[in-house]
């Protein structure tokens, strides 16, 4: 009985979020009819795509009861590596592979530090965040990295038909995330580890392995996001991706992922990203000041977490 009620409420919560998104859309459209234009919808999806991709990974990391603060630096680092490889070899495949390799290595080492080294994820990823940002400035000497291969730029700016390539990548990643967390045994392990680590260890789940793999997935997804960001900007920037991890965490939290682990849904996070993107896009479209935008984002976080704690209590 109790179980059932909880389930109902959590799906109610997502509907509620979608309701807020729709409400926002109506408000923005009323204020500027351009909002609902095909072009702007494409814009919103493209602007949200890279955050959504990394946020899918972030949700898994938060579900296992950890956090990844290095996402922003990794977006920057993997993007830079991609840009540099593309610049020197002019080979897009090689550039993409190199960037994702950076993601695997960084994610993997985050996971090892956290699961084997027993460091709190907060500390381990705080360290890699600082290291990566420092390296980005050292390697580039503060300069931007520019390439000439158009195919690489297409990752961030290209279209298939009328659908932007980043959006297609995003959809694939979301499907992967949902499938992994809801259909596979590994997905159940993720929730178990986050819900009660000791119990999962006793019941025979390889907690260490689960943590490392989750961090690795996070690393790979973040590096994909990094490739999109760098291609979109048209140049590798050592300052790119500042505060990016916060956007991912915000989206996950707004989407109903519990910061204490064990609870959360990929789709909730996706709606969270959509909500935040629609909010920013709409506010810019109707000409609201940049800093008021930050204030309202903060309000959204508080409101949604309040809603979350209240759902939990009942």
């Amino acid at each position: 009985m109790n179980e059932k009620k909880k389930l109902d409420l959590s799906s109610f919560r997502e509907l509620l979020l979608i309701g807020v998104v729709i409400l926002l859309c109506i408000i923005w459209t009323a204020m500027n009819s351009q909002f609902i234009s095909m072009n702007n919808i494409t814009n919103i999806l493209r602007q949200g795509s890279y955050t959504a991709i990394a946020a899918v990974g972030m949700t898994m990391v938060i579900i296992i009861g950890e956090i990844d603060l290095s996402a922003g630096s990794l977006v920057c680092a993997s993007g830079l590596v991609g840009a540099m490889v593309c610049k020197s070899t002019n080979n897009v495949v090689l550039a993409v592979v190199a960037a994702m390799l950076v993601g695997v290595v960084v994610g993997g080492s985050n996971g090892v530090l956290c699961a084997v080294g027993k460091l709190p994820g907060f500390i381990a990823t705080l360290a890699s965040m600082t290291v990566l940002r420092g390296l980005a400035y050292i390697v580039t000497e503060g300069n931007s990295v520019v390439w000439t291969n158009d195919a690489f730029t297409k990752i961030g700016t290209g279209y298939v038909g009328i659908v932007p390539i980043p959006v297609i990548i995003m959809v694939i990643v979301i499907i992967f995330g949902v499938f992994l967390t809801t259909k596979l045994r590994f997905g159940r392990y993720i929730y178990a580890v986050g819900g009660n680590m000791e119990a999962s260890r006793w019941s025979g789940i390889a907690v260490v392995k689960v943590k490392i793999i989750v961090y690795m997935i996070m690393g790979i997804l973040t590096s994909i996001a990094g490739l999109i960001v760098v291609a979109r900007l048209g140049s590798g920037q050592p300052s790119a991706g500042q505060n990016f991890e916060m956007d991912c965490i915000t989206a996950a939290v707004v989407g109903g992922t519990s910061m204490s682990g064990g609870r959360g849904k990929i789709l909730g996070t996706v709606v969270g990203v959509l909500l935040l993107t629609v909010l920013t896009n709409g506010m810019t479209l109707v000409g609201i000041n940049t800093y008021w935008q930050q204030v309202f984002k903060g309000v959204i976080i508080v409101v949604s977490v309040l809603a979350d704690t209240h759902t939990k209590k009942s």
Binding site: Q34, N43, R232, L233, T284, L285, G287
Partner: peptide, 14 residues
């Protein structure tokens, strides 16, 4: 630059 790009795209929309 990423923030500026998102703003610029949206402003051109409006």
């Amino acid at each position: 630059r990423d923030d500026a790009l998102a703003s610029a795209e949206t402003i051109l929309q409006a």
